[in-house]
Design a protein around this nucleic acid. Structure first.
Lengths: 342, 342
DNA sequence: TTGAAAGCGATACCAA
DNA sequence: TTGGTATCGCTTTCAA
C-alpha cells in the first residue's frame, strides 16, 4: 500500500526529517522518540507513529552527523603494523576488538603505510577517536600523542617496549621471554647458546628485545657463557644452513625465538645428524600444541598475555576517567616449560 | 612567541575557522588551500599564510564533518565473524586491509555480536560505508544488502559459500578442498575414509562444505567407498580417543580438515601404534611448512587464495563503477600435494 | 582572487 | 507534550 519497494534501490537514504514528515511531527520529536530521551515525555500514540514511520522508510541514523553534533565519537583506533605476527598475537588482537565492540565502541584499523609517526598521528586524529590503542611497534612520538589528545582522544595507550611520554603505557617486556629461555638453558648446564632472530621483518620488534633478554640472563650468569645471534628465515633451506653453522660454532643450545622457528630448526638439526637434546638443546616460545607432537617434545616458554577483554575494560576505564593512571600488573608473564628437547 | 604550548593539552581542537582567523582569510580560502583546489586560483602569499596558520595551530580536519558535507565516505566495512580461523585466512585478511588502506579507504571492523542479520546490517549502515566486504560466514540477507545499498554502499561483496541476492558474490568453494583430498586418497586405493570435523565453532563454516566435497568425490567414485565424519577437538586427549576409534572403525585413510588437525591426529595414530601411511593414510590442508617437518612428511592440499591486494582492487573497481559485475576467476584453487603420509 | 552563506543530518535548548 | 532553531565543522556555489 504505502510502500514503494520498486524504487527502494534508487530512493536516497531517508533522514530524520523524512521520518518527521511522514509521522506528521517535528524532527526534534523524532530524535526524542528514537533515542528514548528520558528528559522529555512524549505521548504513546506519537511514539508509535514515529516508530512506524521510521520502520516504513527504513530509516538508519547517520553516525557521522550524530558524532559531529555530539562533539565526540565512540571510535577506538587500532593502528596496525605492517605485518602480522604469530597466532598468539593475532588471537589477542581479535579478542580485543571483540570486547571493544561489546562495550559499544567502533573499532577502526588504520595502518600508517609509510607515513612517519607524526603524519600518521595526524591522519588518525582526523577520525577523532576517543581512544587509540597501539599494539605493536607503532611509531608514536610524544608530539603525536599530543595531537591525538588535543583532537579529543581521552586515552592513548601503547602496548609495547618503549614508554611514550603523554600516553598510558602498558609495558610488555619481551626481554623476559628471552631471559626465561636462556635461564632455563643455563640451568641445564648449557654454556654456548644460540638465539634465533627471524629474518622476516614483522618479527623484529619482538625478536630484538628477546635477544636482549637473553644477553641479560647470560651476563648475570657470569663469564664463560656465550650468546650467539642466529638469523634464520622461515624456510627449510635456511634452517638447514643454520643447522650446519650451529654445529660448526659448537653451540650446545639454541633458543629459537618461538615454537615455529624452533620446530623448523630442530628438524634441520636432526636431519644434520645432531642429537637433540644431547648435543644441542632447543627451546621455543608460545607453547603451541604442535610443539608437543614432535619427538623429542619441544621445550618452550609459555607466555601468559593479558586477555583482550581485560585490555578492553582498561581502555573503557581510561576513556571514562581520563587522568587516572592505569594499573595493570601482570600484563604479561613468561615461564619456561621444560619438555624433552632441552 | 605566538605559541602557547602550555595550554596545548586544554585548548580545544582548532577548526578551519580558527585557521582562517589567524591567517586573516575566510574559511572558504582555507578549504581551497588545504585541499589544493584546482578550480580556484589562490595567490601564493595567501597560500603560505594559510599553511603557516594551520601548522601553528596544529589544525587537523574533521573527517566526520567532511564526509557529512560530501555525502559519502571512504569507509570499507569488514564485518568480522566471532572467531578467527587459521593462519591462511588471517594473513589474507591482513593483506586486504593493508591494500585497502593503500587505496585510501578507511577500514572499519565491525562484528555483529549476536545481532541478527538485519539488525547487524542496520548497525553497519549507520557508518554509511561505501563498500562492505563480508569474509566469513557472516549472516547477510537480501534485505540487509538492500539496507546497506540504500544507505550509500556502492558495493556489497560476500566471499563465501552462499550467494546472496543483491550482493556481488565471490564464491569460494570449500567443497573443492574436501573433494581434492578425498580424490587423492581414492587414487591411492583407499576406500574407508574418515573426515575430521573440528569441534571448535569458528571452523564450522569451512569444515562442513569440505565434508560435503568429500562426500561428493566419494559418490563419484561409486559404491564401496565409505566416508566417516570424525569430530575432533584441538587437544591431545581428543586426538588420542579419535585415533583409537579410527582403528576400531577400520579406516584406511583420514582427511583431517587442515594441517594442524592432521598433525595432531597423525601423532595420535602413531602413538596408538598405527603405521602411517601403511595402515592409515593422513592428509591435511593448507600446506603449512610445519607439516613438512614431521615424519612421514604430511601430505596436504595446497590452497591458493586470491591475494588481499587483488580483492582490494576489485572492491575499488566495484566502488568506482557500481553495476558492472565483478569478474574474478580463480578466486581459490586447490590441489593435492602428495608427500609421505598418504 | 576572495568572501558570504547555504546546507549536509542529528540533537538539545528554549518557547509555546 | 511538542515545535522551532541554533549548532557541530566543512565544502562549494554564487557574488563581489
Amino acid at each position: 500500500m504505502s510502500q514503494t519497494p520498486k524504487q527502494s534501490a534508487e530512493r536516497p537514504v531517508p533522514t530524520s526529517a523524512d521520518v518527521a514528515r511522514l509521522a506528521g511531527v517535528s524532527r526534534a520529536t523524532v530524535s526524542y522518540v528514537l533515542n528514548n530521551a528520558t528528559a522529555v515525555r512524549i505521548s504513546e500514540p506519537t511514539r508509535r507513529r514515529v516508530r512506524a514511520a521510521a520502520e516504513e522508510l527504513g530509516y538508519v541514523p547517520h553516525a557521522a552527523a550524530r558524532s559531529l553534533r555530539a562533539g565526540h565519537t565512540r571510535t577506538v583506533l587500532l593502528p596496525t603494523a605492517q605485518l602480522p605476527a604469530g597466532p598468539l598475537y593475532s588471537r589477542f588482537s581479535h579478542e580485543l576488538q571483540w570486547a571493544l565492540r561489546r562495550l559499544e565502541y567502533t573499532v577502526v584499523q588504520h595502518g600508517s603505510l609509510g607515513l612517519d609517526g607524526d603524519e600518521a598521528a595526524r591522519a588518525w586524529a582526523e577520525l577523532r577517536p576517543v581512544a587509540v590503542v597501539a599494539l605493536g611497534d607503532v611509531a608514536l612520538t610524544p608530539h603525536g600523542v599530543g595531537v591525538l589528545k588535543r583532537s579529543g582522544a581521552k586515552a592513548v595507550i601503547t602496548l609495547g617496549q618503549r614508554r611514550v611520554e603523554g600516553a598510558h603505557c602498558l609495558i610488555m617486556d619481551q626481554r623476559e621471554i628471552g631471559a626465561c629461555a636462556v635461564g632455563h638453558l643455563l640451568q641445564r648446564g648449557r654454556r654456548a647458546i644460540g638465539v634465533v632472530l627471524p629474518k622476516e621483518p614483522g618479527h623484529a620488534c619482538f625478536a630484538e628485545p628477546r635477544l636482549e633478554g637473553a644477553h641479560g640472563a647470560a651476563a648475570k650468569a657470569g663469564a664463560g657463557v656465550r650468546i650467539e645471534p642466529l638469523p634464520l628465515s622461515y624456510e627449510e633451506e635456511s634452517a638447514a644452513a643454520l643447522a650446519a653453522r650451529c654445529r660448526a660454532h659448537g653451540l650446545d643450545a639454541v633458543y629459537a625465538y618461538n615454537d615455529e622457528y624452533a620446530m623448523l630448526l630442530m628438524r634441520a638439526l636432526q636431519d644434520e645428524g645432531v642429537d637433540v637434546p644431547r648435543q644441542t638443546a632447543v627451546v621455543g616460545a608460545d607453547d603451541l600444541l604442535l610443539g608437543r607432537l614432535l619427538r623429542p617434545r619441544l621445550s618452550t616458554v609459555r607466555i601468559d598475555l593479558v586477555t583482550g577483554r581485560r585490555l578492553a575494560e582498561l581502555v573503557d576505564r581510561a576513556v571514562r576517567s581520563p587522568g587516572t593512571p592505569l594499573d595493570l600488573h601482570a600484563l604479561m608473564s613468561a615461564r619456561a616449560v621444560p619438555r624433552d628437547s632441552s
